[in-house]
Amino acid sequence: MAERVRRPDPHVSVERDVLVRYLDAWTATVLRSPRGGTYVECGDFAADAFRVFGEFADRLGDHHLEAVLVGRPVPPGGAPAGLAVRTVADLGDVRVPGPMLAHLSDAGPPSLVRGKAHEVLLSAAPGTDHRERLQAAGLGCVVAVDLVADDGTARALVFATADSRHLATFKTELWAADEFAGIRYRDPRDAEGALVDISLTPQLLPLRRALLEELDRRGSRTVAELQRFTLLETIYRAEDAVGALTAAVAAGQLTREPEKGRLGSRTVLSAS
């Protein structure tokens, strides 16, 4: 009998995909900065990160980019030329003064997380709320999304940064992940726990509910303000707000000023 091939964990597959996609954008950014950057890996994705860094091999020699591997050896094949690598036994031993992206299995020590140029991507048990701790450490832009497999098992993925532009970039990569990996997204703040397929054009009903609830709480808001809310408080991208709001207006759930025309950033919306 042929040996059964073990399927990869879909949670890990999507986490790796999202990390690699965002790491590519992050590396391009730090290599444009004279400060360089440091990548901290606490899991098993060092080889994946090194492949990303290898795509920038022609630029590594002229910029400072360092990889810190925590409790892991350098993967087979080694590091691309020009990448500084060090290994440490414990995450508490890591000190990074400049720009940093860390892939963690929990929130990590405050000394590591704290810093305007520090960003973290961490996996955690669903229902674990790291938002307050991360925001208290100075990372005010946080998104948490549950990765839910076909069998119902879930793992939370949390990203935190001090820069809303980087949060927008992360969400772009989040929705561009492998749609056939066997994972759907769930917003832990969605009271109905709706599952949404990974797609560049995702289903927007959970966002529509969240926006209506925000308008019930806060009163009239411009489209720009609701896009900002979408970016900072939901798993969706800012641009997704327009589609959700347009549907709500068409359904008579919202009134708008001015009454006609496309929804622009200054259009004011109110609950009907």
Rank of each mutant, 00 (worst) to 15 (best):
V52I: 15
F53I: 15
F53H: 07
G54H: 07
G54D: 11
G54P: 06
A57K: 12
D58V: 10
D58Y: 08
D58E: 13
R59K: 09
R59D: 10
L60E: 02
G61R: 11
G61Q: 08
D62N: 09
H63R: 15
H63W: 00
L65C: 12
L65R: 03
L65F: 07
E66G: 01
A67I: 08
V68A: 02
L69W: 02
L69V: 10
V70G: 01
G71H: 09
R72I: 00
R72M: 10
R72H: 14
P73W: 02
V74N: 01
V74F: 03
V74L: 15
P75T: 07
P76G: 08
G77F: 09
G77Y: 10
G77P: 09
G77N: 08
G78K: 11
P80Y: 07
P80N: 05
P80F: 10
A81W: 07
G82P: 09
L83T: 01
A84S: 14
A84L: 11
A84P: 00
R86W: 01
R86K: 09
T87C: 13
T87D: 00
V88M: 02
V88Q: 02
L91Q: 07
L91V: 13
L91W: 04
D93E: 15
D93A: 14
D93L: 07
V94M: 03
V96G: 01
P97G: 10
P97K: 12
M100V: 12
L101Y: 06
A102I: 04
S105F: 06
S105P: 01
D106W: 10
D106Y: 08
A107H: 06
G108Q: 08
P109G: 08
P109M: 04
P110H: 07
S111Q: 15
S111N: 10
S111W: 04
L112E: 06
L112I: 10
V113K: 01
R114T: 15
R114N: 02
R114Y: 01
R114L: 02
K116L: 14
A117E: 13
A117L: 15
A117K: 08
A117R: 12
A117M: 12
H118N: 14
H118Y: 10
E119C: 13
E119P: 05
V120S: 03
V120A: 05
L121W: 04
L121P: 04
L121Y: 07
L122I: 07
L122G: 05
L122D: 06
L122P: 03
S123V: 12
S123M: 05
A125E: 14
P126T: 12
P126V: 13
G127A: 11
T128L: 10
D129A: 11
D129T: 12
D129N: 14
H130Y: 15
R131Q: 13
R131L: 11
E132P: 06
E132S: 10
R133V: 15
R133F: 13
L134T: 12
L134N: 09
A136F: 03
A136Y: 01
A136D: 15
A137N: 14
A137I: 05
A137L: 04
G138C: 11
L139E: 06
G140I: 08
G140Y: 02
G140Q: 09
C141N: 13
C141H: 13
V143S: 09
A144W: 00
A144Y: 00
A144Q: 12
A144I: 09
V145Y: 00
V145N: 00
L147Q: 01
L147S: 01
V148M: 01
A149N: 03
A149F: 13
D150F: 08
